[in-house]
Design a protein around this nucleic acid. Structure first.
Length: 421
DNA sequence: TCTGGGGTCCTAGGACCC
DNA sequence: TCTGGGGTCCTAGGACCC
Protein backbone atom coordinates (compact mmCIF):
# COMPACT_ATOMS: atom_id res chain seq x y z
CA UNK A 1 0.00 0.00 0.00
CA UNK A 2 0.98 3.55 -0.56
CA UNK A 3 2.77 5.64 2.02
CA UNK A 4 0.91 6.99 5.01
CA UNK A 5 1.84 10.38 6.42
CA UNK A 6 0.62 12.12 9.53
CA UNK A 7 0.88 15.83 10.10
CA UNK A 8 0.99 16.89 13.74
CA UNK A 9 0.35 20.60 14.18
CA UNK A 10 0.24 22.46 17.49
CA UNK A 11 -2.87 24.50 18.19
CA UNK A 12 -2.26 28.27 18.41
CA UNK A 13 1.30 27.35 19.28
CA UNK A 14 2.71 30.59 20.74
CA UNK A 15 -0.47 31.21 22.70
CA UNK A 16 -0.36 27.65 24.04
CA UNK A 17 3.27 28.14 25.09
CA UNK A 18 2.38 31.27 27.04
CA UNK A 19 -0.54 29.48 28.70
CA UNK A 20 1.68 26.61 29.77
CA UNK A 21 3.10 28.81 32.52
CA UNK A 22 0.00 30.90 33.07
CA UNK A 23 -2.89 28.46 33.53
CA UNK A 24 -4.96 31.42 34.71
CA UNK A 25 -5.10 32.52 31.06
CA UNK A 26 -7.08 29.45 29.95
CA UNK A 27 -10.17 30.79 28.20
CA UNK A 28 -8.88 34.37 28.22
CA UNK A 29 -8.61 35.95 24.73
CA UNK A 30 -4.90 36.27 23.85
CA UNK A 31 -2.65 37.34 21.00
CA UNK A 32 1.09 37.04 20.56
CA UNK A 33 2.69 39.87 18.57
CA UNK A 34 5.50 39.79 16.03
CA UNK A 35 8.86 41.47 16.55
CA UNK A 36 8.48 45.14 17.39
CA UNK A 37 5.02 44.21 18.68
CA UNK A 38 3.86 45.00 15.15
CA UNK A 39 1.38 42.32 14.06
CA UNK A 40 -0.67 39.52 15.57
CA UNK A 41 1.15 36.28 14.76
CA UNK A 42 -0.77 33.94 17.05
CA UNK A 43 -4.34 34.16 18.29
CA UNK A 44 -6.28 32.16 20.85
CA UNK A 45 -9.56 30.59 19.79
CA UNK A 46 -11.47 33.40 21.50
CA UNK A 47 -9.64 36.00 19.42
CA UNK A 48 -10.11 34.07 16.17
CA UNK A 49 -13.82 34.04 16.94
CA UNK A 50 -13.71 37.83 17.11
CA UNK A 51 -12.58 37.82 13.49
CA UNK A 52 -8.96 38.90 14.07
CA UNK A 53 -6.94 37.63 11.13
CA UNK A 54 -3.40 36.31 11.14
CA UNK A 55 -0.81 39.03 10.55
CA UNK A 56 -3.10 41.96 11.27
CA UNK A 57 -1.22 45.07 12.53
CA UNK A 58 -1.73 45.77 16.19
CA UNK A 59 -2.89 49.35 15.74
CA UNK A 60 -5.84 48.09 13.72
CA UNK A 61 -7.13 45.96 16.59
CA UNK A 62 -6.37 48.37 19.43
CA UNK A 63 -10.07 48.89 20.10
CA UNK A 64 -10.91 45.19 20.14
CA UNK A 65 -8.05 44.60 22.57
CA UNK A 66 -9.52 47.23 24.87
CA UNK A 67 -13.14 46.10 24.51
CA UNK A 68 -12.60 42.41 25.07
CA UNK A 69 -9.70 42.61 27.46
CA UNK A 70 -7.44 40.73 25.04
CA UNK A 71 -4.18 39.79 26.73
CA UNK A 72 -1.17 40.62 24.50
CA UNK A 73 2.35 39.16 24.57
CA UNK A 74 5.55 39.99 22.70
CA UNK A 75 7.09 37.01 20.90
CA UNK A 76 9.35 35.01 23.17
CA UNK A 77 11.19 32.82 20.69
CA UNK A 78 13.58 31.42 23.26
CA UNK A 79 10.61 29.93 25.09
CA UNK A 80 8.82 28.73 21.94
CA UNK A 81 11.97 27.09 20.57
CA UNK A 82 12.50 25.15 23.76
CA UNK A 83 8.88 23.94 23.97
CA UNK A 84 9.01 23.04 20.28
CA UNK A 85 12.03 20.80 20.88
CA UNK A 86 10.10 18.96 23.60
CA UNK A 87 7.15 18.35 21.29
CA UNK A 88 9.46 17.03 18.55
CA UNK A 89 11.28 14.76 20.99
CA UNK A 90 8.00 13.21 21.99
CA UNK A 91 7.06 12.59 18.34
CA UNK A 92 10.47 11.04 17.68
CA UNK A 93 9.91 8.67 20.57
CA UNK A 94 6.84 7.15 18.89
CA UNK A 95 7.58 7.24 15.15
CA UNK A 96 10.76 6.08 13.39
CA UNK A 97 10.78 8.87 10.82
CA UNK A 98 9.85 12.41 11.76
CA UNK A 99 10.37 15.46 9.58
CA UNK A 100 10.21 18.72 11.50
CA UNK A 101 8.60 21.13 9.12
CA UNK A 102 8.41 24.25 11.25
CA UNK A 103 8.52 25.36 14.85
CA UNK A 104 5.01 24.02 15.48
CA UNK A 105 4.47 21.14 13.08
CA UNK A 106 6.03 17.88 11.96
CA UNK A 107 5.28 15.08 9.52
CA UNK A 108 5.50 11.46 10.67
CA UNK A 109 5.92 8.52 8.31
CA UNK A 110 3.34 5.90 9.32
CA UNK A 111 3.69 3.65 6.27
CA UNK A 112 3.04 0.03 7.14
CA UNK A 113 1.49 0.83 10.49
CA UNK A 114 -2.05 0.23 9.26
CA UNK A 115 -1.36 -3.50 8.91
CA UNK A 116 -1.44 -3.90 12.65
CA UNK A 117 -3.02 -0.75 14.02
CA UNK A 118 -5.89 1.60 13.45
CA UNK A 119 -4.46 4.85 12.09
CA UNK A 120 -7.15 6.78 13.90
CA UNK A 121 -6.19 5.16 17.19
CA UNK A 122 -2.53 5.92 16.59
CA UNK A 123 -3.40 9.54 15.86
CA UNK A 124 -5.32 9.79 19.12
CA UNK A 125 -2.45 8.18 20.99
CA UNK A 126 -0.03 10.74 19.51
CA UNK A 127 -2.26 13.62 20.47
CA UNK A 128 -2.74 12.53 24.05
CA UNK A 129 0.94 11.71 24.51
CA UNK A 130 2.09 15.17 23.44
CA UNK A 131 -0.57 16.79 25.59
CA UNK A 132 0.34 14.73 28.61
CA UNK A 133 4.13 15.01 28.30
CA UNK A 134 4.51 18.60 27.08
CA UNK A 135 1.14 20.18 27.77
CA UNK A 136 0.65 21.60 24.29
CA UNK A 137 -2.61 20.74 22.46
CA UNK A 138 -2.15 19.39 18.92
CA UNK A 139 -4.24 18.15 15.99
CA UNK A 140 -3.33 15.18 13.83
CA UNK A 141 -4.18 14.67 10.15
CA UNK A 142 -3.38 11.41 8.38
CA UNK A 143 -3.38 10.63 4.66
CA UNK A 144 -1.28 9.40 1.76
CA UNK A 145 0.48 12.60 0.66
CA UNK A 146 1.73 15.64 2.50
CA UNK A 147 -0.84 17.92 0.89
CA UNK A 148 -3.68 15.58 1.89
CA UNK A 149 -2.26 15.18 5.41
CA UNK A 150 -2.27 18.95 5.67
CA UNK A 151 -5.88 18.99 4.53
CA UNK A 152 -6.78 16.31 7.07
CA UNK A 153 -5.14 18.38 9.78
CA UNK A 154 -7.16 21.45 8.82
CA UNK A 155 -10.27 19.31 9.04
CA UNK A 156 -9.24 18.12 12.49
CA UNK A 157 -8.79 21.72 13.61
CA UNK A 158 -12.01 22.99 12.08
CA UNK A 159 -14.49 20.28 13.00
CA UNK A 160 -14.57 19.69 16.74
CA UNK A 161 -16.54 16.46 16.41
CA UNK A 162 -13.36 14.83 15.07
CA UNK A 163 -11.72 15.18 18.47
CA UNK A 164 -8.71 16.75 16.73
CA UNK A 165 -7.73 13.64 14.76
CA UNK A 166 -8.71 12.83 11.15
CA UNK A 167 -7.84 9.73 9.13
CA UNK A 168 -8.16 10.79 5.51
CA UNK A 169 -6.70 7.76 3.78
CA UNK A 170 -9.96 6.85 2.08
CA UNK A 171 -10.57 8.50 -1.30
CA UNK A 172 -14.27 8.95 -0.65
CA UNK A 173 -13.59 10.93 2.50
CA UNK A 174 -10.87 12.92 0.77
CA UNK A 175 -13.31 14.06 -1.88
CA UNK A 176 -15.94 14.91 0.68
CA UNK A 177 -13.58 17.12 2.67
CA UNK A 178 -12.14 18.72 -0.47
CA UNK A 179 -15.65 19.66 -1.59
CA UNK A 180 -16.06 21.56 1.68
CA UNK A 181 -12.66 23.31 1.45
CA UNK A 182 -12.02 26.55 -0.40
CA UNK A 183 -9.26 26.33 -2.97
CA UNK A 184 -7.28 29.05 -1.16
CA UNK A 185 -7.02 26.80 1.91
CA UNK A 186 -5.07 24.15 0.02
CA UNK A 187 -1.40 23.96 1.03
CA UNK A 188 0.60 25.67 -1.72
CA UNK A 189 -2.23 27.85 -2.98
CA UNK A 190 -1.73 31.40 -1.78
CA UNK A 191 -3.73 34.57 -2.24
CA UNK A 192 -2.59 35.38 -5.77
CA UNK A 193 -3.14 31.97 -7.21
CA UNK A 194 -6.46 31.37 -5.47
CA UNK A 195 -7.78 34.64 -6.91
CA UNK A 196 -6.84 33.59 -10.41
CA UNK A 197 -8.18 30.07 -9.92
CA UNK A 198 -11.51 31.35 -8.65
CA UNK A 199 -11.90 33.69 -11.58
CA UNK A 200 -11.46 30.63 -13.80
CA UNK A 201 -14.18 28.71 -11.95
CA UNK A 202 -11.92 26.60 -9.73
CA UNK A 203 -13.44 27.35 -6.34
CA UNK A 204 -13.08 24.33 -4.07
CA UNK A 205 -10.17 22.03 -3.34
CA UNK A 206 -12.13 19.36 -5.19
CA UNK A 207 -12.37 21.56 -8.30
CA UNK A 208 -8.59 21.85 -8.19
CA UNK A 209 -8.11 18.10 -7.69
CA UNK A 210 -10.30 17.45 -10.74
CA UNK A 211 -8.62 20.08 -12.94
CA UNK A 212 -6.58 18.92 -15.92
CA UNK A 213 -2.91 18.86 -14.81
CA UNK A 214 -1.72 19.96 -18.26
CA UNK A 215 -4.05 22.94 -18.20
CA UNK A 216 -2.81 23.85 -14.72
CA UNK A 217 0.81 23.61 -15.81
CA UNK A 218 0.15 25.79 -18.85
CA UNK A 219 -1.72 28.53 -17.00
CA UNK A 220 0.12 28.35 -13.69
CA UNK A 221 3.24 26.36 -12.94
CA UNK A 222 4.82 23.03 -12.35
CA UNK A 223 4.46 23.71 -8.63
CA UNK A 224 0.67 23.89 -8.78
CA UNK A 225 0.60 20.88 -11.06
CA UNK A 226 2.30 18.94 -8.29
CA UNK A 227 -0.32 20.11 -5.83
CA UNK A 228 -3.03 18.70 -8.12
CA UNK A 229 -1.28 15.34 -8.16
CA UNK A 230 -0.87 15.37 -4.40
CA UNK A 231 -4.59 16.03 -3.95
CA UNK A 232 -5.17 12.91 -6.04
CA UNK A 233 -3.01 10.78 -3.81
CA UNK A 234 0.08 10.86 -6.01
CA UNK A 235 3.01 11.86 -3.85
CA UNK A 236 5.25 14.53 -5.40
CA UNK A 237 6.75 16.14 -2.32
CA UNK A 238 9.38 13.84 -0.81
CA UNK A 239 9.11 13.00 2.86
CA UNK A 240 12.54 14.47 3.46
CA UNK A 241 13.55 13.41 6.92
CA UNK A 242 17.10 14.60 6.44
CA UNK A 243 16.78 18.33 5.96
CA UNK A 244 19.41 19.62 3.52
CA UNK A 245 21.88 22.15 4.82
CA UNK A 246 20.68 25.69 4.50
CA UNK A 247 21.40 27.54 1.28
CA UNK A 248 21.21 30.98 2.70
CA UNK A 249 21.04 32.73 6.04
CA UNK A 250 19.18 35.99 6.43
CA UNK A 251 19.22 38.24 9.45
CA UNK A 252 17.08 41.32 9.15
CA UNK A 253 14.95 43.45 11.42
CA UNK A 254 12.59 46.34 11.30
CA UNK A 255 13.85 49.04 13.63
CA UNK A 256 11.96 50.13 16.72
CA UNK A 257 12.93 53.69 15.73
CA UNK A 258 13.91 54.87 12.27
CA UNK A 259 17.62 55.12 11.53
CA UNK A 260 18.94 58.32 9.91
CA UNK A 261 22.65 58.22 10.71
CA UNK A 262 25.32 56.09 9.07
CA UNK A 263 26.97 55.39 12.43
CA UNK A 264 23.76 53.87 13.78
CA UNK A 265 23.22 51.87 10.61
CA UNK A 266 26.76 50.50 10.78
CA UNK A 267 26.09 49.40 14.33
CA UNK A 268 22.84 47.70 13.37
CA UNK A 269 24.45 45.90 10.43
CA UNK A 270 27.32 44.83 12.69
CA UNK A 271 24.78 43.20 15.00
CA UNK A 272 23.08 41.43 12.09
CA UNK A 273 26.27 40.07 10.60
CA UNK A 274 27.48 38.85 14.00
CA UNK A 275 24.24 36.91 14.44
CA UNK A 276 24.40 35.59 10.87
CA UNK A 277 27.95 34.34 11.41
CA UNK A 278 26.83 32.52 14.55
CA UNK A 279 24.06 30.81 12.60
CA UNK A 280 26.53 29.92 9.87
CA UNK A 281 28.90 28.27 12.32
CA UNK A 282 26.01 26.34 13.82
CA UNK A 283 25.31 24.96 10.34
CA UNK A 284 28.95 24.01 10.12
CA UNK A 285 29.32 25.89 6.86
CA UNK A 286 31.42 28.66 5.40
CA UNK A 287 29.96 31.30 3.08
CA UNK A 288 31.43 33.08 0.12
CA UNK A 289 28.68 35.52 -0.77
CA UNK A 290 27.49 38.38 1.39
CA UNK A 291 24.65 40.75 0.65
CA UNK A 292 23.56 43.82 2.60
CA UNK A 293 20.29 45.68 2.10
CA UNK A 294 18.34 48.54 3.60
CA UNK A 295 15.03 50.25 2.98
CA UNK A 296 12.72 52.99 4.14
CA UNK A 297 9.19 52.10 5.20
CA UNK A 298 6.95 51.34 2.19
CA UNK A 299 4.02 52.35 4.38
CA UNK A 300 5.28 55.88 4.98
CA UNK A 301 4.01 57.16 1.64
CA UNK A 302 4.68 60.81 2.43
CA UNK A 303 8.39 60.19 3.11
CA UNK A 304 11.01 59.86 0.38
CA UNK A 305 11.51 56.19 -0.47
CA UNK A 306 14.79 54.42 -1.02
CA UNK A 307 15.70 50.77 -1.02
CA UNK A 308 18.92 49.21 -2.18
CA UNK A 309 21.12 46.20 -1.79
CA UNK A 310 24.63 45.29 -2.74
CA UNK A 311 26.76 42.22 -2.47
CA UNK A 312 30.28 40.97 -2.56
CA UNK A 313 31.89 37.68 -3.38
CA UNK A 314 34.58 37.05 -0.82
CA UNK A 315 38.02 35.93 -1.92
CA UNK A 316 37.58 32.81 0.13
CA UNK A 317 34.57 31.30 1.91
CA UNK A 318 34.62 32.00 5.64
CA UNK A 319 32.68 31.83 8.89
CA UNK A 320 34.89 34.34 10.67
CA UNK A 321 32.86 37.14 12.22
CA UNK A 322 35.71 39.59 11.83
CA UNK A 323 36.07 39.10 8.07
CA UNK A 324 32.32 39.20 7.50
CA UNK A 325 32.04 42.26 9.69
CA UNK A 326 34.67 44.12 7.69
CA UNK A 327 33.02 43.21 4.40
CA UNK A 328 29.57 44.22 5.60
CA UNK A 329 30.92 47.64 6.62
CA UNK A 330 32.31 48.17 3.12
CA UNK A 331 28.97 47.20 1.61
CA UNK A 332 26.73 49.33 3.78
CA UNK A 333 28.78 52.42 2.96
CA UNK A 334 28.34 51.71 -0.71
CA UNK A 335 24.53 51.95 -0.58
CA UNK A 336 24.10 54.40 2.28
CA UNK A 337 22.37 57.70 1.48
CA UNK A 338 21.73 60.46 3.98
CA UNK A 339 18.36 62.14 4.24
CA UNK A 340 16.24 59.03 4.51
CA UNK A 341 14.46 57.41 7.43
CA UNK A 342 15.43 53.76 7.30
CA UNK A 343 12.89 51.31 8.67
CA UNK A 344 14.62 48.05 8.00
CA UNK A 345 17.93 46.54 6.99
CA UNK A 346 19.56 43.16 6.89
CA UNK A 347 22.31 40.88 5.73
CA UNK A 348 22.23 37.69 3.70
CA UNK A 349 24.89 35.00 3.51
CA UNK A 350 24.87 32.51 0.65
CA UNK A 351 27.06 30.31 -1.51
CA UNK A 352 27.89 27.87 1.27
CA UNK A 353 30.59 25.24 1.42
CA UNK A 354 31.38 22.51 3.86
CA UNK A 355 34.83 23.43 5.22
CA UNK A 356 35.66 19.76 5.84
CA UNK A 357 35.38 19.13 2.10
CA UNK A 358 37.23 22.30 1.16
CA UNK A 359 40.65 21.93 -0.31
CA UNK A 360 43.27 24.05 1.28
CA UNK A 361 43.85 26.94 -1.03
CA UNK A 362 47.30 27.86 -2.09
CA UNK A 363 47.29 31.08 -0.16
CA UNK A 364 45.54 29.84 2.94
CA UNK A 365 46.38 32.45 5.55
CA UNK A 366 48.28 31.40 8.60
CA UNK A 367 46.47 31.71 11.88
CA UNK A 368 43.19 30.34 10.53
CA UNK A 369 43.15 27.61 13.14
CA UNK A 370 43.31 30.32 15.74
CA UNK A 371 40.31 31.96 14.17
CA UNK A 372 38.35 28.73 14.43
CA UNK A 373 39.23 28.30 18.08
CA UNK A 374 38.30 31.87 18.84
CA UNK A 375 34.91 31.58 17.14
CA UNK A 376 34.08 28.31 18.87
CA UNK A 377 34.93 29.71 22.27
CA UNK A 378 32.92 32.80 21.55
CA UNK A 379 29.86 30.81 20.53
CA UNK A 380 30.05 28.70 23.67
CA UNK A 381 30.30 31.68 25.96
CA UNK A 382 27.54 33.45 24.11
CA UNK A 383 25.27 30.45 24.41
CA UNK A 384 25.70 30.32 28.17
CA UNK A 385 25.57 33.97 29.10
CA UNK A 386 24.70 36.02 26.07
CA UNK A 387 27.34 38.47 27.30
CA UNK A 388 30.57 38.29 25.37
CA UNK A 389 30.10 40.08 22.10
CA UNK A 390 32.01 42.10 19.60
CA UNK A 391 32.33 45.61 20.86
CA UNK A 392 30.04 47.01 18.21
CA UNK A 393 26.88 45.56 19.67
CA UNK A 394 27.14 45.71 23.43
CA UNK A 395 24.53 48.23 24.52
CA UNK A 396 20.86 48.44 23.92
CA UNK A 397 20.07 50.87 21.15
CA UNK A 398 17.07 53.11 20.57
CA UNK A 399 16.31 51.29 17.32
CA UNK A 400 16.37 47.79 18.84
CA UNK A 401 13.03 46.10 18.49
CA UNK A 402 10.20 46.81 20.84
CA UNK A 403 9.16 43.94 23.08
CA UNK A 404 7.09 45.58 25.72
CA UNK A 405 5.01 42.60 26.79
CA UNK A 406 7.61 39.87 26.97
CA UNK A 407 7.03 36.84 29.16
CA UNK A 408 9.96 35.44 31.17
CA UNK A 409 12.26 32.79 29.71
CA UNK A 410 10.72 30.21 32.03
CA UNK A 411 12.57 27.19 30.71
CA UNK A 412 15.95 28.46 29.58
CA UNK A 413 17.17 30.91 32.20
CA UNK A 414 17.78 30.11 35.84
CA UNK A 415 16.86 33.61 36.82
CA UNK A 416 13.44 33.34 35.27
CA UNK A 417 12.24 29.95 36.48
CA UNK A 418 8.56 30.01 37.37
CA UNK A 419 7.93 30.26 41.12
CA UNK A 420 5.54 28.03 42.99
CA UNK A 421 3.58 30.09 45.46
C1' DT B 1 2.21 57.51 15.26
C1' DC B 2 1.81 52.22 14.76
C1' DT B 3 2.33 47.00 9.31
C1' DG B 4 7.55 40.46 11.34
C1' DG B 5 11.33 37.54 10.08
C1' DG B 6 13.30 33.72 7.85
C1' DG B 7 13.13 30.55 4.54
C1' DT B 8 12.19 27.66 -0.22
C1' DC B 9 11.38 26.86 -5.16
C1' DC B 10 10.71 28.26 -9.93
C1' DT B 11 11.14 31.18 -14.04
C1' DA B 12 12.67 34.69 -17.11
C1' DG B 13 16.16 37.14 -19.01
C1' DG B 14 20.92 38.78 -19.60
C1' DA B 15 25.87 37.74 -20.12
C1' DC B 16 29.02 34.90 -21.95
C1' DC B 17 31.04 31.14 -24.55
C1' DC B 18 31.81 28.32 -28.58
C1' DT C 1 19.40 42.26 -48.48
C1' DC C 2 21.31 38.88 -45.66
C1' DT C 3 23.17 39.37 -39.34
C1' DG C 4 23.12 31.77 -35.46
C1' DG C 5 21.86 28.99 -31.91
C1' DG C 6 22.39 26.33 -27.99
C1' DG C 7 24.27 25.65 -23.42
C1' DT C 8 25.43 27.39 -18.88
C1' DC C 9 25.68 30.41 -15.20
C1' DC C 10 23.93 34.13 -12.59
C1' DT C 11 20.54 37.31 -10.77
C1' DA C 12 16.14 39.37 -9.92
C1' DG C 13 11.63 38.80 -9.01
C1' DG C 14 7.43 36.40 -7.95
C1' DA C 15 5.01 33.05 -5.53
C1' DC C 16 4.51 30.29 -1.57
C1' DC C 17 5.13 28.61 3.50
C1' DC C 18 5.02 29.22 8.76
Amino acid sequence: MAQVIALVDCNNFYVSCERLFRPDLQGVPMVVLSNNDGCAVARSAEVKDLGVKMGVPRFQIEELIEQHGICTFSSNYTLYGDISARVMNTLESIAPRVFVYSIDEAFMDLSGLQKNYSLLEFGRFTKSKVEKEVGIPVCVGISTTKTLAKLANQGAKKYHSTGGVVDLTEVKRQRKLMAMTEVGDVWGVGRRISQRLESMGVKSALDLADADPKWIRKHFSVVLERTVSELNGVSCIPFDDTPPVKKQIVVSRSFGERITELAAMRKAIAGFITRAAEKLRKEGQVAQHLQVFLRTSPFAKSQPQYANSTSERLVEPTDDTRLLLAASMRLIERIWLSGYQFAKAGVMLSDFYDPKLQQQTLFCAEGDSRSEALMTTLDQINYKTGRVQFARRIDRNPWDMKREMLSPRYTTSWLELPRVK
